[in-house]
């Protein structure tokens, strides 16, 4: 099976989501994959060549790909994909925006959120916010177009030296109907939520954005990423990109500590794959205690300073 993976990149670096997607390749084939990098920075190709499970990096350097506009990328990818049996993207907002356009251009159905490859044409994927698992089979001789669920895969090693091939932009008409205006994101030195091994998360119980500082100091102590519940985002305490849950980010850290989060179903859907879940909540009946490995009924404003003191 010939597999093409489409790389995601941000701020001049390959996103770790790409690395996790390459991990899924090993379940499909032992032959590796070609990694397509569409961007405007050849350093991306060099970084991409170090990932395991990559045979060749296909680098298509062009400024039109700088902001990774799905409608501009999809016709090009669909053309390149003619030579492959399978096209994969990470199931991030990038991949989910893009892959359905590729699938439609190829006239094939798409598999969203591969969590396990049972056999090369049989896949498991979550439905109903992870409350059920669907096992589906795609017909023979149909190209596979799929996104890979990050919480189900680890990053690959980066000790490879894949060949870099510069690929010309095919001669097809590309749309000009979409213009990137801006992106607003919080600059942070902390690890990326979707790949961090430790995540600490806060809910509405924090009461204000100032009070989240307490959580940030704990995160810095633990080298953790910081997440939040939908309620905390909706209350304006933290930006949307920190939201953990079905409608935010689905994560799988080794350790997840939730403070003042009651545990709405949609939040739990985002953390079910965490290794160890800790919940600290004043309400002893909070649903999050039902899935927590360690639960502590306590006021987070008293608990966090005590825990920080223990960490030394």
């Amino acid at each position: 099976m010939r597999v093409l993976v489409v790389a995601e990149h941000n701020d001049g670096a390959i996103n770790p989501s790409t690395s996790k997607t390459l991990s899924c390749v090993a379940e499909l084939t032992s032959l590796g994959s070609d990694l397509l990098v569409m961007g405007n920075n050849s350093a991306l190709a060099e970084q991409a060549a170090r990932f395991q499970n990559v045979d060749s990096v296909l680098y298509m350097g062009n400024e039109i790909f700088e902001h990774q506009i799905a409608a501009v990328m999809s016709p090009v990818i669909a053309k390149i994909a003619q030579d492959y049996d399978c096209v994969l993207c990470p199931s991030t907002t990038f991949g989910r925006d893009l892959m359905p356009r590729i699938a439609a251009a190829l006239n094939v159905g798409q598999i969203t959120d591969i969590m396990n490859v049972v056999a090369p044409r049989i896949f498991k994927r979550p439905i109903y916010a992870g409350n059920a698992i669907q096992t589906i089979e795609i017909q023979d001789n149909v190209k596979i177009a799929a996104t890979v669920r990050l919480a189900s895969y680890k990053e690959v090693e980066t000790n490879n030296q894949a060949t870099i091939k510069n690929v010309e932009l095919p001669e097809i008409e590309l749309p000009s109907h979409t213009r990137f205006l801006r992106i607003e994101s919080e600059a942070t030195e902390r690890p990326d939520l979707q790949v961090a091994s430790v995540v600490v998360s806060g809910g509405r119980a924090f009461g204000s954005s100032e009070n989240f500082e307490l959580l940030y100091s704990l995160a810095d102590k633990l080298g953790a990423a910081v997440g939040a519940s939908r309620a905390a985002v909706d209350a304006g305490y933290v930006p949307n990109d920190m939201q953990v849950g079905q409608t935010g980010k689905i994560i799988s850290p080794d350790l997840y500590i939730a403070f003042g989060i009651s545990g709405a179903i949609q939040h739990l859907a985002g953390i079910k794959d965490a290794g160890t879940i800790v919940a600290v909540n004043k309400d002893a009946d909070a649903p999050i205690f039902e899935i927590a490995d360690f639960g502590i009924v306590a006021d987070l404003f008293e608990f966090i300073p005590e825990f920080l003191a223990k960490l030394g």
């Binding site: 439905i127 409350n131 698992i133 669907q134 096992t135 089979e137 795609i138």
Partner: peptide, 18 residues
Amino acid sequence: FFKVISVTAPPPRESGIK
């Protein structure tokens, strides 16, 4: 394009301790 082979419950998490 697809055949649904099964729909199953996700593996439950073991209950934790207080």
